[in-house]
C-alpha cells in the first residue's frame, strides 16, 4: 500500500466519507442528510476498491447508494406530516460524547497496536483474479448455513415489512 495513487485515493475517499457522515449530522433537512449519506456511502465504496473488494464495492453501491436511500425516500414521503426536520433530540450531548469516545478509542487502539502488517500477501499469494467467484464459492460452501439463514431473514423481513404497513381493508 505504498503506491502514491492508493495513498492519495485513501485520504481523499476517507475525507469524503467522514465529511459526508458529518454532513448527515449537520444537515438541517432529512433529504439533504440523505444526499450526504449517499455521498459518504459512495466514498466508502471507493475505499473498498482500494482494499481489493471489487465485488463488495459494487454491492455497496447497489445496496447502500441505490436501494436504501430509495427506501428512506419512501419513508420520508409516506410520513409527510411528520416533517423533514433533521433536528437533535434530548441526547445530543451524550450522543456526541459517546461518538467521540468511540472514535477516539478505536483510533487510539488502531494506531497503538502493532498489527504486524503483511499487506495483502495472502491475497496476492492466493492470486484471486476476482473476488466474486471466491466469495460465491465461500457462500455456498463453507458458509452455506449462514447463507440460507440470511435468505430466510430477508424473506422474513420482506413479509414483516409488508404485514406491518399493510392497510387493513376493514378499518
Amino acid at each position: 500500500m505504498e503506491s502514491l495513487g492508493i495513498i492519495v485515493a485513501f485520504y481523499l475517499l476517507s475525507a469524503i466519507a467522514v465529511g459526508g457522515a458529518i454532513g448527515v449530522f449537520l444537515a438541517s433537512d432529512l433529504i439533504r442528510a440523505l444526499a450526504f449519506l449517499v455521498l459518504s456511502f459512495i466514498a466508502t465504496a471507493g475505499l473498498f476498491l482500494t482494499l481489493s473488494g471489487d465485488f463488495i464495492a459494487i454491492a455497496q453501491i447497489l445496496i447502500y447508494a441505490g436501494a436504501i436511500p430509495v427506501l428512506i425516500v419512501f419513508a420520508v414521503m409516506l410520513a409527510p406530516l411528520a416533517g423533514r426536520n433533521n433536528g437533535n433530540g434530548l441526547y445530543l450531548v451524550p450522543g456526541l460524547a459517546l461518538g467521540a469516545a468511540v472514535a477516539v478509542t478505536v483510533a487510539f487502539v488502531a494506531v497503538d497496536v502493532e498489527w504486524n502488517e503483511l499487506s495483502g500477501a495472502l491475497l496476492a499469494e492466493r492470486d484471486f483474479a476476482t473476488t466474486a467467484g471466491a466469495i460465491g464459492d465461500a457462500l455456498v460452501g463453507r458458509y452455506v448455513l449462514a447463507f440460507e439463514i440470511a435468505s430466510v431473514l430477508l424473506l422474513a423481513a420482506l413479509i414483516g415489512a409488508i404485514v406491518l404497513v399493510r392497510e387493513d381493508e376493514a378499518t
Partner: peptide, 8 residues
C-alpha cells in the same frame, strides 16, 4: 387506518 397525508 390510512396514512394521514397532506392533500395538496
Amino acid at each position: 387506518m390510512t396514512t394521514a397525508t397532506e392533500p395538496y
